[in-house]
């Protein structure tokens, strides 16, 4: 970080290579919109470049700090576009009487994205951080500013809601627990 802050081009490229995809994925799945995700990723990296010259080794782990910045950037953008996002949410498919077992992956992805977007923000972020970003529970709890117990509760409620929403497209796979 300090090298990047001093204008070391190679250090900046390394940070981008390692973390841009993570930030973009987190923002994309949190916001449900690629364009907003790209804008948010740029905002996050502006914060990175701004903080880099003053970065100290004793401060928080970089990835945890980065996700916290990304989370706040997403929350800001959601607050600004809450109504628009709500209007743009794709409708979930009507429950099919005999759902096909081989739903196209892209269609599944669309349904999952829509289901994620319907989750409350903190539940969505908890699922994204732990399932997609692979953060350990203690890291995800730190990013969200909650205890590990609270994180597990968010995750369980979030996955339960996802299961309920996605049962319509894969009832054979998602039997009632």
């Amino acid at each position: 970080m300090l090298r990047a802050g001093a204008g070391d081009r190679a250090a900046c490229q390394l940070l981008v290579e390692r973390h841009l995809r993570r930030v973009l994925t987190f923002a994309d799945r949190t916001l449900g919109n690629r364009s907003d995700a790209e804008d948010t990723a740029q905002d996050v990296f502006l914060r990175v470049w701004s903080a880099a010259p003053r970065w100290s080794k004793g401060s928080a782990r970089f990835s945890t700090w980065l996700y916290r910045v990304a989370k706040n950037a997403c929350l800001d953008r959601m607050a600004k576009k809450r109504e628009i996002i709500s209007e743009e949410l794709p409708e979930l498919a009507d429950p099919r009487p005999e759902p096909s077992a081989d739903i196209h992956t892209a269609e599944v992805a669309r349904h999952v994205t829509a289901a994620l977007a319907r989750l409350p923000e903190t539940q969505r972020m908890a699922v994204i951080l732990c399932h997609y970003q692979g953060l350990r529970n203690i890291e995800a709890a730190e990013v969200l500013g909650v205890s590990v117990e609270a994180l597990e509760s968010l995750l369980a409620r979030g996955r339960r809601a996802l299961r309920a929403q996605l049962r319509s497209i894969a009832p054979a796979l998602l039997r009632e627990a």
Partner: peptide, 10 residues
């Protein structure tokens, strides 16, 4: 199902 969402590449 969750993993059906593709990886996002910048």
């Amino acid at each position: 199902l969750l993993d059906a969402v593709p990886v996002v590449e910048p």
